[in-house]
Design a protein around this nucleic acid. Structure first.
Length: 985
RNA sequence: GGGCCCGUGGCUCAGACUGGUCAGAGCGCCCGGCUGAUAACCGGGAGGUCGGGGGUUCGAGUCCCCCCGGGCCCA
């Protein structure tokens, strides 16, 4: 036997939400939950680690965590032991830059003077502070993850796992050192990955110049090249032309210029030259190998050594007819395409620029100048030498550093690479095995991305990151890669407390081969290495948790925003393929971005950012959850205060469903669900709906269709329970036949109790409040979080019955239309509804669900028959027929209407006195005219029953009414009625 | 320059994978109603050439192509 307690009437999340969170905390609900699921089947979820760059998460990050929480709660409800360890991506440049700013630094030198050790500790402190603070907000939104045991990429155990991976990669022969042109930030003095570069392009004004390179041995013939980066001219080694395009020789004064035919007009227009003459035309390939003199060779030292090199090379890939002159200045030290062509033609790589973006001595006269500042000097020199045809300016998108906005340069440096290109096919194959939601998220976006796969630069020239575990012998250059701190200890005898720089830098040992000193290369690793390793490093694999990993790999589910297709989804796949020859995850949900109310990206610096505490304060936690969950997850989501307001109202309806039900159910002994065949059709119907809702929610969540699942639950509560079932149940629960009221209370209790764990996936705080205050039985678990999702009972589901109810809904709605068309109010009971139809289903529906139709249409009987010939009727059509409402009214209808009016007013008075339904009884005293008197006479029993009255008595004067009665004057239509009620003691 | 997504009544969005009761919901608006859920609730109505144009088809928000607008990713 179950009992429910009355739920407080007002939906007041502001009041109870913090208390529920406090309750979960103080009662260690999460910890107990973990324990309770021990030994069950595992579900492996992996948290994409957010970057703790602020003390407060972006509302979009909260959305991200809510999505994760829904899947976690769902799987837990299905009975799984869910791995729900949150992660934090703690290393990297943003934290370094913030720390630098806090310390007032602007260069690496200042950091080294300050002390790398102190600097790194500051970075760690900042990351730790931020992640702790952000955790608070995630908990606020009821995200139930293992907050006490997160994985942190800066922890030694994590770093060791990452090192193990590097060593494996090295053993495969994939780790190599090489010189490459890379994007470089001259302020941060480090390489940036392509991914980091793509973060930020800015419009920038640069010179746009056409330069003449004199053809060797000729008197006056020149190759005309175009560039927007004059500072790369000192590193020029060749000129590219397109083999299949037409080129021309043009006479221009005393000079003859060589350029592409298709570009001729544009170039001459831009340089405002009108007087020129085409004297020869040929294919680009014909000038392949043509040698030229560099105009700056007497100024730039290194150019003098290149006299034998300068020549025309061919490329159909990188020469465009869209811009420039068709003769492309090629500097393999300062461009990726240039480098590729350089390799093809075996050209030298020149890069006379240092890490701070200044020319080196190789650049002769320009030595010491910042490259961008050198532009104007170089242009002047070209002009002086007569090598400048034209100088203009151009505004174009130019990459800047994503952290400090400094324009990037491309320079050739020594970096560490992981060979990947031979894995492209395998990665494509593996990504094809992944279940992507939505499908286009992976199938198209990801494939395109993988097709452009290149080797991976994993080294960074910074401080706060996982040190690259490569030691090199100073004497013989032999390399060793270290896979754990134990190995370091074995080799050097040093036991490191902290594996970061600078402590790890100090560890050296003797080279086994030559006895030289083995010293670590000073680089740290790309942060994408960190987060890409999370699928094994978060479990401490292989050092302290091989079993867990072996049991859990691969990850069942991950979800992040669409920016992570090329970010984390990719880096996980890369690490998985490198180390385990497979995708490390099975299914991926790609979600959208949180935009502001106008559809623009939401950013702190744009001032359109909504802080999560404001959402908590103004709308509530469950409200925000349900708001974001009803939206299609993979689309960008517009934040909307109004949307939150609407959501809140929906939740209050659900709350009211429970309030209403508990009003009737409280203090009643409620037995188990009666057998199906004994049930009223309406009860059969609601049980069918309950089970089909459960079935649909489970199916939707298993497909990661969160919005469908959320909508199903809302629909069930609002449309089925609130709008329909409860309206019928209200009368049945107060039935004089205790068998009836007993059946309905059992069904109602069962339905609400079964629905609660489903509701709790989406609105856990509200569900907990309802559970604790009202539904929890003595031997029930102490929190709603422990409840398993009830099994779907197929035998309860009748799509036929559900279809029947839909027909009834349509008829009721049409009868409302019929009434309103003749101005008949719904409160007035009518004699009969006549339904004219040929449809068998309509007839069955009407016969099966008669009660609903009678109650909802407020008629005394229903008849199926022919169109009426005589009498007064209101009519309306519905999709499968026509209906007529009888407008003929006798005493029974008229007096019945009055009885209802009286009852309603008496009820309201009872409520004002705070009397309890079905418990506290009253006596009623009335004054009114003959019509009122007759209504009471005819419906005496109904009024008395409905209002829990012992006596209803007409009085002539107020003196007959007992003392201390509660009295009120009413006007019903045009009649005056006085009502007094007095509680029976 | 390339790729992907989005563009549905005043607002916010479902529906598109699998063409044919798919032209829907909520809010807002207008009208009416209910009443022991009440700073709620219910019903009805008005309102959309489903961004524009072309194509495939007996039939297209739904598939294809082009264009316009917005967003994201990559160059």
């Amino acid at each position: 036997m179950a009992r429910v307690r009355r739920l407080t009437r007002y939906f007041n999340p502001k009041e109870y939400e913090p208390k529920i969170i406090e309750f979960w905390d103080s009662h260690k609900i999460y910890e107990k939950l973990r324990m309770s699921r021990k030994g069950r089947k595992r579900f492996h979820f992996l948290d994409g680690p957010p970057y703790p760059s602020s003390d407060m998460p972006h509302p979009g990050t909260v959305w991200n965590k809510i999505i994760k929480d829904v899947i976690i709660r769902f799987k837990r409800g299905e009975g799984y032991d869910v791995l729900d360890k949150p992660g934090w991506d703690t290393h990297g440049l943003p934290i370094e830059v913030m720390t630098e700013k806090a310390l007032g630094f602007s260069s690496k030198k200042e950091i080294e003077v300050f002390g790398i050790d102190k600097f790194v500790l500051k970075c760690k402190e900042l990351a730790t502070k931020n992640l702790r603070s952000m955790t608070r907000y995630f908990k606020e939104f009821a995200v139930s993850m293992d907050w006490e045991n997160p994985y942190l990429t800066y922890e030694n155990r994590y770093i060791e796992s990452a090192w193990w991976g590097v060593k494996e990669i090295w053993k495969q022969g994939r780790l190599y050192e090489g010189e490459r042109p890379v994007h470089w930030c001259p302020r941060c003095e480090t390489v940036l990955s392509d991914y980091e570069v793509s973060e930020n392009y800015k419009d920038m004004m640069d010179p746009s110049i056409f330069v003449k390179f004199k053809v060797l041995g000729s008197e006056n013939e020149y190759l005309l090249i175009w560039t927007t980066t004059p500072w790369t001219l000192p590193a020029n080694v060749a000129v590219m032309v397109h083999p299949d395009e037409d080129y021309v020789k043009v006479r221009l004064g005393d000079d003859i210029l060589i350029l592409a035919k298709k570009r001729l007009e544009n170039v001459m227009n831009e340089a405002s030259i009108e007087d020129y003459e085409v004297i020869e035309e040929f294919k680009g390939r014909e000038i392949g190998g043509l040698r030229y003199e560099h105009p700056l060779e007497d100024i730039v030292r290194v150019q003098r050594e290149l006299r034998e090199v300068h020549r025309v090379v061919l490329s159909d890939k990188y020469v465009t007819m869209e811009e420039g002159s068709g003769c492309v200045h090629t500097a393999p030290g300062h461009g990726k395409e240039d480098f590729e062509i350089g390799e093809l033609y075996n050209l030298p790589v020149i890069s006379p620029v240092d890490e701070r973006g200044r020319f080196t001595e190789e650049a002769g006269k320009y030595s010491g100048l910042q490259v961008r500042e050198a532009n104007s000097v170089i242009i002047e020199d070209l002009r002086e030498k007569g090598a400048l045809l034209y100088e203009g300016t151009i505004i174009h998108k130019y990459p800047v550093c994503w952290r400090c906005d400094t324009p990037l340069i491309i320079r050739t440096t020594n970096q560490w690479f992981v060979k990947l290109t031979d894995l492209r096919e395998k990665m494509l194959e593996e990504s094809g095995k992944v279940k992507w939601v939505p499908r286009w998220g992976g199938e198209r976006r990801f494939r395109d991305w993988l097709l452009g796969l290149e080797d991976w630069i994993i080294s960074r020239q910074r401080y706060w990151g996982i040190p690259l575990p490569v030691w090199k012998c100073e004497e013989c250059g032999r390399e060793e890669v270290i896979g754990s701190s134990k190995e370091i200890e074995e080799k050097s005898g040093v036991k490191l407390e902290d594996l970061h720089r600078p402590w790890v830098d100090e560890v050296t040992w003797k080279c086994e081969k030559c006895g030289g000193i083995m010293r670590r290369v000073p680089d740290i690793m790309d942060v994408w290495y960190d987060s890409g390793s999370s699928f094994f490093a978060s479990l401490g694999y292989p050092h302290d948790n091989s079993d867990a990993f072996n049991e859990l790999f691969p990850v069942n589910f991950i979800t992040e925003g669409h920016d992570q297709v090329r970010g984390w989804f990719f880096s996980l796949l890369r690490m998985g393929t490198l180390l385990f020859r497979r995708a490390p995850y099975e299914s991926v949900l790609m979600h959208g971005f949180m935009l502001d109310e106008k559809g623009k990206e939401m950013h702190k610096r744009l001032g359109n950012y909504v802080p999560p505490p404001e959402i908590v304060e103004k709308s509530g936690r469950d409200t925000y959850r349900v708001f974001v969950l009803t939206k299609v997850p993979w689309q960008d989501l517009r934040f909307s205060w109004r949307g939150l307001e609407e959501t809140s109202r929906k939740l209050s309806v659900i709350w009211n469903v429970y309030v209403f039900a508990t009003t009737y159910l409280r203090d009643r002994e409620i037995g188990p669900l009666p057998p199906l065949e004994e049930l009223d059709p309406v009860n059969k119907w609601i049980l069918s709906r309950l089970n089909s809702m459960m079935r649909d929610v489970r199916a939707a969540l298993n497909e990661y269709q969160l919005h469908t699942a959320t909508t199903e639950v809302l629909k069930f509560f609002i449309e089925d329970l609130s709008h329909l079932y409860l309206r019928v149940a209200r009368k049945k629960l107060r039935s004089r036949d205790s068998k009836v009221s007993d059946q309905w209370s059992r069904v109602l209790y069962h339905v609400l109790r079964e629905a609660l764990p489903y509701l709790s996936i989406f609105a856990p705080l509200m569900s907990e409040k309802i559970y604790l205050d009202s539904f929890k039985q003595e031997d029930d678990p102490e929190s709603v979080n422990f409840l398993l999702l009830g099994q779907v009972r197929q035998e309860y589901i009748s799509s036929y019955l559900e279809e029947m109810m839909n027909i009834i809904r349509e008829i009721v709605s049409a009868s409302g239309f019929a009434r309103s068309s003749v101005g008949m109010r719904k409160r007035q009971p009518l004699r009969e509804i006549l339904i004219v139809t040929q449809d068998e289903d309509v007839i069955k529906a009407v016969n099966t669900l008669t009660d609903v139709l009678l109650t909802e249409a407020n008629v005394r009987c229903v008849r199926i028959g022919e169109e009426p010939i005589r009498g007064k009727w209101a009519e309306a059509e519905f999709s499968r027929g026509k209906l007529y409402l009888s407008l003929e009214m006798g005493d029974k209808e008229l007096l019945g209407g009055m009885a209802r009016e009286l009852t309603r007013r008496i009820q309201q008075m009872r409520k004002e006195l705070g009397l309890t339904i079905g418990v506290e009884r009253i006596n009623i005293y009335l004054q009114g005219d003959e019509f009122v008197r007759r209504a009471v006479e005819m419906f005496y029993d109904d009024i008395a029953w409905d209002s829990d009255a012992d006596v209803i008595k007409f009085v002539v004067s107020e003196e007959e009414v007992p003392e201390n009665s509660f009295g009120k004057e009413w006007k019903i239509d045009d009649r005056r009625v006085s009502i007094w009620i007095k509680k029976v003691v």
